[in-house]
């Protein structure tokens, strides 16, 4: 479970609050979309609760541990073993094949051999089992994003965070990505939090949180 308490984020000490005294609880297995207009603070909130941004006022708890007080090695392990990230731009490593990109977190964890079959299964799930040995520049944008999702899921993380995962994709590929998220949430009880500006894709989540000016204005479960 993730608990954010009285979060406030400013990009400069005297600047306006991008996230303004915000509190939210994310339960294990939640499938949440963060929506709002541009500048509403949805991406900022995602990075705060996902530990990537650790400069804030307030507290973010992962179960009982507060992120800013967590030893760095523990934080690196948490990111490696329990979190997966998907960004709007795929951020694949150009020198590595699709399979090697997917296995990168496992390589860091020292579980390369153990995760090889999982990687092949994931490639099959995202429909790219025949393109396992292709480099990113030999894949389409949609295919690259699916590889990035497979990479985020290789360690079977407890939490998956995605910032505009469909933002750079057409409707067909966007749909495919959302289907993958829904499937993992159902099959593996992965907690998924994603940011989207697309109302239709936002509706695919079981819980929809809307932000305006750094505050939650609605938090609805379907």
């Amino acid at each position: 479970m993730i608990r954010a308490l009285h979060l406030t984020k400013r990009f400069s000490p005297t600047g306006p609050a991008v996230i303004d005294d915000l509190s939210v609880e994310i339960f294990d297995g939640n499938f949440i979309s963060l929506v709002g207009r541009s500048g509403s603070g949805k991406s900022t909130l995602l990075y705060l609760i996902s530990s990537l941004d650790r400069k804030y006022e307030g507290e973010v708890f992962y179960d009982q541990s507060e992120i800013t007080h967590m030893p760095m090695q523990e934080l690196h392990n948490l990111r490696n073993r329990q979190m997966g990230f998907v960004f709007q731009f795929h951020y694949l490593i150009n020198e590595l094949t699709a399979l090697e990109n997917i296995l990168l977190p496992a390589r860091k964890a020292g579980l390369l051999k153990e995760k090889e079959s999982t990687a092949h299964e994931l490639l099959k799930t995202v429909g790219l089992d025949e393109k396992a040995h292709r480099l990113p520049n030999q894949l389409s944008g949609g295919e690259q994003q699916r590889v990035a999702i497979a990479r985020a899921l290789i360690m079977q993380p407890k939490y998956l965070f995605a910032d505009e995962p469909t933002g750079n994709l057409d409707t067909h590929n966007g749909d495919a990505v959302m289907n993958l998220f829904a499937r993992f949430n159902q099959d593996h009880k992965t907690t998924i939090v994603y940011v989207t500006h697309d109302r239709e894709f936002a509706k695919r989540a079981s819980r929809q949180i809307e932000l305006v000016d750094g505050k939650i204005v609605s938090d609805e479960a379907h």
Binding site: L52, F89, Y91, I93
Partner: peptide, 16 residues
């Protein structure tokens, strides 16, 4: 820089 960002998000340390 992008590679560094994604690798850090995967748990790679500054030393890595």
């Amino acid at each position: 820089r992008r590679d560094i960002a994604i690798m850090r998000s995967m748990g790679f340390t500054p030393k890595d």
